[in-house]
Design a protein around this nucleic acid. Structure first.
Lengths: 185, 185
DNA sequence: GTCTATAACTAGATAGAC
DNA sequence: GTCTATCTAGTTATAGAC
């Protein structure tokens, strides 16, 4: 409680700015100089808080994505019924709506994240999500439908329809409807 | 007709190797040195055939993706019925199966391509594809379904299911079934 | 048409002062 | 905790020989 006068949450502010830039331009195209400038500090200051550039990327991902793990855990504690799966979809949609920036970040940097050590974690997470949404007894198309449902939510949350007639929430609601319809017994 | 003895297809070979590497590691992480080494030439040779690195990326895209334009054109010449749309899906699946590398390339470098001048072209292409697969008379969920159908094909063509019980073609076939089901009157 | 050599630059990262 | 200064390594790109 003594070692915290004014400096504060610089670490969190770095993550915040980096999240914005990584989501906007992608990890590779974002220079540390850019992050530093936006914060009004130098590159060297960044290195006090993070060991490497990659470290910033990974920290954003790990700090934020545990909600999905909790959702999977919850699903596993429930009976594997269609209704459970539908509830997973609804909750997943809620999560994504509350974290559009993070979703955009993950989508934009998916190829990059995949090649990192943390890519395995991400892969396992997706596998877990798919696992609670499908089962081996289903036909191959139905298994695909379950996986596609996850994407429908992301797609609907993030991508604005080209015509501007519909609000983001309308599209997100429609995405939930489509996704629910893709979950079959 | 005089200036073409033996060298010839170096340009095409550069594109081929670049396609491989860009699809595998992504555009940013691929060094021109790498491409040159794989071909057994020097970086400078690359600059004889292409003005910039970006030029290589763009040339791959433009040289290969015109099949999609032709598909869209064909669809526009047909009556906008459900059956036409289903045929578009089938043909699109055929295209993607024949060009897995290109599909992977596009997926991996989507964020990069988007920020380039050619990104607009890509966007228009997708918009055209969506246009022939949906119409304004449909409900919002049905419009989303039409767009999701396109993704289902890509998804099914590229992503192997985590369990190895199914071949790529089986998954691709299932994807077509799911996609067709997403196209509604 | 392709090479050698190198220019010109930018990135991420570190050392040490304050 | 943040700074200045600098390093190292990698990149794109060009000039000019063969």
């Amino acid at each position: 409680m003594t070692t915290r006068e004014r400096p504060r949450d610089t670490r969190a502010r770095i993550q915040q700015v980096a999240l914005d830039l990584f989501a906007e331009h992608g990890y590779e195209k974002t220079a540390l100089r850019e992050i530093a400038e936006k914060l009004g500090v130098t590159k060297a200051a960044l290195y006090y808080h993070f060991k490497t550039k990659e470290d910033i990327l990974v920290s954003i991902f790990t700090d934020s994505a545990e909600q999905i793990d909790e959702l999977i855990e919850w699903a596993r504690s429930q009976p594997p019924t269609v209704e459970t799966r539908r509830e997973v979809i609804r909750r997943y949609s809620g999560l994504m709506r509350g974290n559009r920036k993070l979703l955009q970040f993950m989508h934009e940097n998916q190829p990059t994240l995949r090649d990192l050590p943390i890519g395995e974690t991400m892969k396992h997470r997706m596998a877990g999500l798919f696992e609670v949404l499908t089962d081996d007894g289903q036909s191959l198309p139905d298994q695909l439908r379950g996986r596609l449902a996850v994407f429908a939510i992301s797609f609907g949350t993030m991508v604005a329809m080209s015509d501007t007639k519909h609000s983001r929430d309308e599209v997100a609601d429609a995405a939930v409807e489509v996704a629910l319809d893709l979950i079959r017994g």
